[in-house]
């Protein structure tokens, strides 16, 4: 069999990419949960704790926007936090991935893409055994709408695409700009505040709504709530917007990677 390094067959190449992502994601998870008692249950900690805090502080005050029910506020905050914590933790962990993989990249022929993708994969796995099923159950219990229940995986997949695209782009940019973590920290905080996490969208001034709607994470939260909590006629807008944002982010990340990857090895 002939294999050429410069141009391996596509099928072989993507097969190898999958193998590499799988083994690297396993490694990342093992490192993360080595010596922890709670292990993977830690994935619950962030969204659950934040939900408790937000509910305790804002729950009663904002309940009037949630049909007068604190319970609905709690569920709404939790679903939003699932989306945002997944997005923010995956992207900020992936940011340094290609550069951290430098010592391996300098001795074994590997596609650098493996490193950010494996971190996203590890986070997906983590949520897939913790928070994602809960969103699914919420949808069954709260909406009684088979269409919404079936759309839960679609919205989650779109959120994963969005996260993967942004993660790839960030890990590529970090190769060139080493002060990016600071910038992304601030950006993450802005994203947190400009997403309807702990307050209802109704509070946002009408003249800001247009700009507000441009936040893809805000759309993702709205979409996830639409399929997991909301009753009545289905609003497809946030769902379509999230799928669109996911596709665009993934395409943009892949494009950026393709354009710059030849330069990586000189800088890591």
């Amino acid at each position: 069999m002939v294999t050429t390094i410069s141009a391996p067959p596509d099928q072989l190449r993507s097969r190898r990419l999958v193998d590499l992502v799988r083994i690297s994601a396993t490694r990342a998870l093992k490192v993360r949960y080595r010596g922890t008692v709670l292990g993977i249950l830690w994935s619950f900690a962030n969204p659950v704790l934040m939900t408790v805090i937000y509910s305790a502080i804002f729950g009663t005050a904002f309940s009037k926007y949630y049909d007068g029910s604190v319970g609905r506020y709690v569920v709404s905050a939790f679903v939003g936090l699932v989306a945002v914590t997944f997005f923010l933790s995956s992207t900020s962990e992936s940011l340094q991935a290609i550069v951290s993989g430098g010592s391996l990249l300098n001795k074994i022929a590997l596609p650098p893409l493996v490193f950010p993708l494996s971190i996203v994969a590890a986070n997906v796995f983590q949520q897939a055994v913790t928070t994602f099923p809960i969103v699914f159950v919420l949808s069954i219990v709260l909406t009684h709408d088979p269409v919404r229940v079936l759309l839960v995986p679609v919205v989650l997949a779109a959120i994963v695409m969005l996260t993967a695209g942004v993660s790839i782009a960030l890990s590529v940019l970090f190769v060139f700009f080493r002060d990016l973590p600071h910038v992304w920290n601030i950006f993450g905080f802005i994203l947190w505040l400009t997403s309807p996490l702990f307050y209802p969208v109704a509070l946002v001034p009408a003249n800001l709504r247009f700009w507000y709607a441009l936040n893809p994470v805000g759309q993702a939260i709205a979409a996830l709530r639409e399929v997991a909590i909301v009753r009545g006629p289905l609003d497809l807008n946030p769902i379509v917007a999230t799928v669109f944002a996911g596709a665009v982010a993934l395409a943009a990340g892949a494009w950026l990677y393709r354009m710059t990857r030849r330069e990586f090895m000189d800088l890591i």
Binding site: V2, T3, T4, I5, S6, K30, V31, R34, S103, K107
Partner: peptide, 21 residues
């Protein structure tokens, strides 16, 4: 650069192990 077959690169051995594992 064309190569044919499996390659074992013995370059900078021991770098790249995950210390915690």
């Amino acid at each position: 650069v064309r190569t044919q077959g499996t390659i074992a690169p013995l370059i900078e051995l021991g770098v790249g192990f995950e210390p915690e594992l």
